[in-house]
Design a protein around this nucleic acid. Structure first.
Length: 612
DNA sequence: GGGCCCGCAGGG
DNA sequence: CCCTGCGGGCCC
């Protein structure tokens, strides 16, 4: 064996599978995938060779973590957030639209409006897709969709080429306007013209009501666009204010462009979502009934949802177990034997395959005793003679443990079939993951002891992993005080997962680093930074992220120095009488020093940013 | 930063 | 089933 070692193909397959599954579920593309686990998604994000050229948008989108119906109106409450029991908080920031979608704030991953023409609009995204948009924070003017030429396989097109009409999504928005439904609003970093957009990612800014809508010739000057006046009406303060309370009803801003507008629509009757003294904003009329199979809330579908999750998870276990199949009986191996030639069988199967034969056969011919002949026993999977091995076959203990682990896991899942969502969460870590966690903690300890015995490439890898871990820990240690308990567990898992992820990345890059050491190192560092940042998000675990103080400062300064961007880009704004006018000095005051509730994480981030 | 190109989700 | 759509990675 030593002279001609054989690779255990089954183990290779299992390890590879476990690893790719992990990468897939841990988001191989470097996004903070802390939440994505065992979802029913293909291992390969890309289905065709041609598609590989394209990016994340071509991957299937991730699992939805909240249990709201797809057409749920209003804030996402804690009871629909089984993972964190927090709900989606104002200020929560995601890396991109796909991640935002996973938390239900805004489901479409390209379209800016979520809604149904006969039912209403649930959410909008401010992403800079329409230059007509005008953002004043507490209120903004939004532009409808359509009127553009999307021929030629385009997804967007900056240029209007026909009038927008109040149909489809535009009708949905108008309906929400008429009924006074709350509309969730997310702002994207892609909205460059707004002072209220986040620097990075996509941020949930709370709910707004559409007070009016109309049609008007757009800024491009030729075609009509649908226009909507959104005014904030959330019980949580906006991410850019230091206010401790949410919105109060405010007078509508004067909109100059309303003059000469057509098809003006205002709310018909009293709004469904309104402000009640001492209670805040709430449904004063029952919210619209969901027209879609709710993912939860209703026990029937909830069960289906869990079953779906379960199945997705089971399949992973099952697939792993399948790799541990005995090629004789086709079942998962019992008492696995690993032959010198690297094949695996149940002990019983293999011994049965050769009967009770010994290894030698006595031969006699005509009274003479011939030299005993060694019996050749070929491995059932290859021509190798495994006779000697069969003399004293040793069970592969490690493999057995692994199989037992997987089996126990599978059995537990079955037992827990009717269990709660929390229990399911616990199940998510499978045996392999645990093993890896153990490994990594081992590595860490080794290094804490000052292990200098590792050389070269391996050393680099380990160092990177450890460094990354340290970085990962920083935001955790300085994390805020709220919700500690609820998130502790998650954080740990997250860190471990992220660290392993880094480890994988480091391994991948190790080769490159060898050849182009410097370039490679740079790359690694970049990667590491990315992961650490990602972990920062993870550490927040959805903790609200305030708009970064540095950015606010900069913007406030710009505003102070003569009107700033806003005036330049929004000539039609009626600033004097608007509530938003008050927000500028407020931000200025805040940037003067007192930042209430700025999270350490975001401070770190903005510092980094400022460094750039 | 802009152009390109695609998969995907969801409305209708 | 077809059409639409304020994405996103890659290449330049």
């Amino acid at each position: 064996m030593a002279s001609q070692p054989r690779i255990n193909a089954a183990l290779v397959a299992v390890i590879r599978m476990a690893r790719t599954a992990k990468n897939a579920s841990a988001g191989g593309s470097g996004n903070p995938v802390h939440y994505i686990r065992n979802e029913a998604r293909p291992d390969k994000a890309f289905t065709t060779d041609r598609a590989k050229k394209a990016g994340k948008a071509n991957a299937s989108s991730g699992q939805i973590f909240v249990t709201i119906a797809p057409d749920h109106f209003g804030p996402i409450p804690a009871e629909n957030d089984p993972k964190r029991r927090l709900g989606v908080l104002v200020g929560e920031t995601w890396e991109d639209r796909l991640e935002c979608r996973q938390w239900g704030a805004h489901f479409p991953h390209v379209a800016g409006i979520a809604g149904q023409s006969e039912h209403g609009a649930q959410s909008v995204a401010l992403s800079g897709g329409y230059i007509d948009d005008e953002d004043h924070g507490e209120w903004f003017l939004y532009t409808g969709s359509g009127g553009r030429d999307l021929s030629g396989n385009k997804r967007t097109n900056k240029e209007q080429s026909s009038d927008q009409k109040f149909d489809k999504m535009n009708a949905a928005l108008r309906l929400s306007c008429k009924k006074g439904y709350p509309v969730r609003v997310v702002r994207s970093h892609k909205e460059k013209r707004s002072s209220y957009a986040p620097e990075t990612g996509v941020r949930y800014d709370g709910v707004y009501r559409i007070e009016k809508c109309w049609r008007k010739i757009g800024v491009q000057g030729t075609y009509k666009v649908c226009r909507y006046l959104f005014v904030r009406c959330d019980n949580e303060p906006a991410p850019w204010t230091s206010d401790l309370h949410g919105d109060r009803p405010r007078p509508l801003p004067k909109i100059k462009e309303l003059q000469g507008a057509t098809d003006i629509t205002e709310r018909a009757g009293s709004p469904s979502w309104d402000y009640v003294e001492n209670e805040g904003w709430k449904w004063v009329k029952p919210p619209p009934i969901s027209k879609k199979p709710a993912q939860s809330g209703d026990p029937e579908t909830d069960k289906q949802f869990r079953k779906y999750q379960k199945r997705a998870h089971m399949s992973m276990n099952e697939r792993l177990l399948k790799e541990f199949g005995c090629s004789i009986c086709k079942n998962v191996m019992k008492e696995p034997l690993t032959t010198p030639c690297g094949h695996n069988f149940c002990k019983a199967c293999l011994t049965a395959a050769f009967g009770d034969e010994g290894s030698m056969r006595e031969r006699s011919r005509g009274g003479r005793t011939l030299r005993a002949q060694k019996i050749v026993k070929n491995c059932p999977s290859c021509p190798t003679d495994i006779c000697d091995f069969l003399e004293n076959p040793q069970i592969n203990i490690e493999m057995k443990d692994l199989i037992d682990n997987l089996l126990a896991k599978a059995a537990k899942e079955k037992t827990d079939a009717e269990g709660s969502a929390e229990e399911n969460d616990d199940d998510e870590e499978d045996a392999l993951e645990k093993e890896e966690e153990d490994d990594s903690s081992l590595n860490e300890e080794e290094n804490d002891d000052g292990a200098e015995n590792k050389a070269g490439e391996e050393d680099a890898v380990v160092k990177i992993v450890v460094d990354a871990k340290d970085e990962l820990k920083k935001p955790l240690k300085r994390k805020g005080d709220e919700e500690e308990e609820a998130k502790d567990e998650k954080k740990i898992k997250t860190t471990a997962a992220a660290a392993t992820d880094v480890e994988n990345a480091a391994e991948e890059d190790a080769e490159k680093a060898e050849d182009k050491e410097e370039e490679g190192a740079k790359k690694l560092q970049k990667k590491r930074k990315g992961r650490a940042e990602a972990a920062g998000t993870a550490a927040g675990g959805g903790k609200r992220k305030r708009a970064s103080p540095a950015a606010a400062e900069e913007k406030a300064a710009a505003a102070a120095a003569g009107g700033g961007k806003r005036k330049k880009t929004s000539p039609a704004a009626a600033e004097e009488t608007t509530p938003a006018a008050a927000s500028t000095p407020r931000r200025a005051t805040r940037s003067g020093g007192a930042v209430a509730g700025g999270s350490p994480a975001s401070r770190t981030r903005s510092n980094t940013k400022a460094g750039n």
